[in-house]
């Protein structure tokens, strides 16, 4: 089976004076069904790695394949299509449409697929239910707690059944109880078949994941627990 993510010898240099080499030859492969933690000290290149895997940025050198699609050969239109259909992203700061309800926020996950609104709402209901937040569907997200907001963001990332969900420090803005419940949700979803890559600072969370990829200074220094 094609890996859902395939990064081969990926470099990322941010131009400037001096230029910053954020990734210096990273090779990581993620298969369907994986639950991967990406760990490393601050500035080691974790977010850079996630941006590349999410098709939000392009590598300076090396190749990135998302669900088999080589990013370097895709134009903006096609790469956007890959993001719309194959990827779900969760951010540390949630990034929700504050004036909309939980349901509407989750439904935006299907917005750029050309799915009609009624169908979007149906799928959003199902995703909110999976995230354990069905009872908050009609609430404006501005009124929800941090943990609930992150669940909305997670529901939004998986509403379109993406090949992989990428989460950048999803518990970074939550207290430990809310963080634990979000981690439990990620485990549940993975058990249900969702492929998940989680960036985290938290050693405890990382330890709970089957596979851990450790970054340091833009290089993979350890990749443990992977099945294959």
């Amino acid at each position: 089976m094609t890996p859902v993510l395939e990064l081969r010898d990926v470099h990322k240099v941010y131009p400037g004076t001096p230029p910053v080499a954020s990734l210096r030859g990273v090779t990581v492969t993620v298969h369907a069904g994986d639950l991967v933690a990406v760990v490393g000290p601050s500035g080691s290149g974790k977010t850079t790695l996630l941006n590349l895997a999410a098709g939000l940025d392009r590598p300076s050198r090396g190749s990135v394949r998302i669900a088999g699609e080589p990013v370097e050969r895709l134009g903006d239109r096609q790469l956007s299509g890959v993001r719309a259909h194959r990827l779900g992203v969760v951010f540390q700061q949630f990034v929700l449409l504050e004036r909309s309800t939980a349901l509407e926020n989750v439904a935006t996950g299907l917005f750029y697929r050309g799915v009609p609104a009624p169908e979007r709402r149906r799928a959003a209901h199902a995703a909110l239910d999976r995230a354990g937040l069905a009872h908050r569907a009609g609430f404006p997200v501005a009124h929800l707690s941090g943990g609930e907001r992150q669940r909305v963001a997670i529901a939004r990332s998986l509403v379109g059944r993406p090949a992989v969900v990428l989460a950048d420090e999803p518990t970074g803005n939550l207290d430990s109880a809310a963080g634990d419940s979000v981690v439990a949700l990620l485990h549940d979803l993975n058990a249900g078949g969702v492929t998940i890559v989680v960036i985290t600072h938290d050693e405890r969370i990382a330890a709970s994941m089957r596979r851990r990829v450790s970054l340091r200074d833009g290089l993979v220094v350890a990749d443990t627990g992977g099945g294959s």
Binding site: A54, D76, R77, S80, R83, H85, T108, F111
Partner: peptide, 16 residues
């Protein structure tokens, strides 16, 4: 800007 970034992450093209 954040909303624009979010929409791009959700699959919006530059044209959209």
């Amino acid at each position: 800007r954040r909303e624009i970034g979010l929409r791009r992450a959700l699959g919006a093209t530059r044209t959209h």
